[in-house]
Design a protein around this nucleic acid. Structure first.
Lengths: 335, 335
DNA sequence: TTGAAAGCGCTAACAA
DNA sequence: TTGTTAGCGCTTTCAA
């Protein structure tokens, strides 16, 4: 049967089927201008030899048939449905998916994007890249690019993001309705919430500040690293401080989980301190967790990003900036 | 500044620095036999032009400097530390990491592995691939391969797996100690627990059956799909049946979470039905969840897999089969 | 120490 | 409709 390695080349197939390499190439690509007779002979030889085209060689010629996905922090469960959706869409095309992971979003995603272009991928979906916009524009000049999760305005690349303004509005309305006044916001570092970054955290923070301002309340922002452990430590500090908040809006579920653990650690319950998250990862609905959270519809975000990239590769040139609707899932003590 | 696209070629660098392409190639690769003077001139030109070698072209020549990781179900949080560790190790080498994701483990991983070899990667780490051993052997004949998470015996590839026999022993001892006698096992489909597959689920099931047999107890095995929702449904059935078990050993945490939700759904608590999982994903320790689980040390598994692959690429030929120790983390109602 | 030349496997003109 | 030819950007003998 077929050997996994690509030892069998197009020339081998050509020799066996008695045609030219170019002809084989045409058959393989389903290109125009091949007789049915030739198709059959060539396909028979391909089958017989177990031929598989070398993507590496194709990539060098310019058309790599591979779509690259840049992805930091694979650990974030929110990205799983996003990637699944991307793959579903791409599966129906002639492209394949390769993921260039980066360990930390900050300053590493850039390297992953470079790796991808070094591989001559046909186009790239970058998931929440923490990268300077100018650099991304420059990158997009040479490579079809879709940014997922950052609401940047650019005519060099397409953008798909969740409706953070609306999501945050829903969260704050929900908490106000339940009578909360001392509401703290737990988010990431200043760098991550830089308004110019277009990051979701920036928009959530902005929405929180606006809502508190409109309500005439004092905003209280705590900052933590991305990990649950870091959020836990910050959360303990926050809850031990004076004027303990009655509710905490965490900028994502990982932070919310850390916060929940801090609540528990101090012998409090979510009746004392309500916690709301963002992302609605699968375990938010777990009994015993029951975290109120905003579902970002990652599946739809991934699908749209893939569709946009494919249409770019198909020739579209006008940029698209798309916002996906979100929905608060109320649970547990704040339901 | 540097353009992300690889428009600048080695020839351009050669022209600017006034040397031959071959010379530039040597400098770039740090190959033997280049004068200090030449190094400097070439490096200056590289800097000036923002040159980046094309991986695609390199790959075609045979030496791709890329390590491929085959990964099904990115959603499984157990894999995050595994991949992180792989990346950490690879970062210190001249290689890069590319991930070929597959949506469903069954029969899709094969395609991902083929994609990887079509890309001419230098070597591959396959994470828990549900693939026929003969096929893997064939594959490994053409490509350095490390299997992570399946305990297969082969001299064609290297193997790293967790010590499931010991992990299961710890789980069962723990439950027996707490007086449980009616202990059910929740696992995946028959296909996945096929003993010949070397899958972790097969070994956990075997360990469970052995332990029950030795204790003179009746084994009760329930089967479910991989997702939490499916485990929930099966769990509800199991708990509604006659002779409700007092404890359930779930073959991994996703199944355990479904089981926990089933317990809750039926108005029971983990005092009525104890649940133990396997993988010790981060949220197992979450207050309100407090799932007793076996920590598989994914970080160590990933690190060893990467080290083994690098040493293969460095010329090692004798196969290695390595087992990583595991540890039960007792929590909550079974602690 | 350096360079010339051949070719990896494929695609895309162009010619037949 | 088919085949010939010329590279893509790089590495690697082999001579100089």
């Amino acid at each position: 049967m077929s050997t996994p390695s690509s030892r069998v080349t197009l020339r081998d197939v050509a020799r066996v089927s008695g045609v030219s390499p170019a002809a084989v190439s045409k058959v393989v690509r389903g290109a125009y201008g091949v007789s049915e007779q030739m198709r059959q002979r060539v396909n028979a030889a391909i089958e017989e030899l177990g031929y598989r085209p070398s993507i590496a060689a194709r990539a060098m010629r310019g058309s790599s048939s591979t779509i690259g996905v840049e992805l930091a922090s694979l650990g974030n469960p929110f990205f799983a449905p996003v990637l699944d959706a991307v793959m579903s869409v791409v599966d129906d095309s002639r492209y394949q998916v390769m993921v260039a992971p980066s360990q930390s979003p900050e300053r590493e995603g850039q390297r992953s994007l470079e790796t991808l272009s070094d591989h001559n991928v046909a186009g790239v979906i970058a998931v929440s890249p923490v990268i300077d916009q100018a650099w991304l524009e420059e990158y997009a000049r040479a490579m079809p690019l879709v940014i997922l999760g950052r609401d940047l305005a650019s005519d060099a690349f397409d953008v798909v993001s969740g409706d953070d303004a609306d999501g945050t509005r829903q969260v704050m309305a929900h908490l106000f309705e339940r009578g909360h006044r001392r509401i703290a916001h737990l988010t990431r570092s200043e760098q991550v919430t830089d308004p110019a970054s277009g990051s979701p955290h920036a928009r959530r923070l902005a929405g929180y500040l606006r809502a508190m301002d409109v309500a005439g309340l004092e905003a209280r922002v705590s900052r933590s690293g991305p990990r649950e452990e870091e959020a836990f430590a910050v959360g303990v500090d926050l809850l031990r401080g004076r004027e303990r908040p009655t509710a905490v809006f965490a900028a994502n579920d990982a932070l919310a989980f850390g916060m929940l653990r801090a609540v528990d650690h101090l012998g409090l319950t979510t009746r004392d301190v309500a916690v709301v998250g963002y992302d609605d990862v699968p375990l938010a609905r777990q009994p015993g967790v029951s975290l109120t959270s905003v579902n970002q519809n990652g599946e739809q975000m991934g699908r749209r990003a893939a569709e946009l990239l494919l249409s770019r590769l198909d020739g579209r040139t006008d940029p698209v900036r798309e916002v996906v609707p979100v929905r608060l899932e109320a649970r547990g003590s704040t339901a």
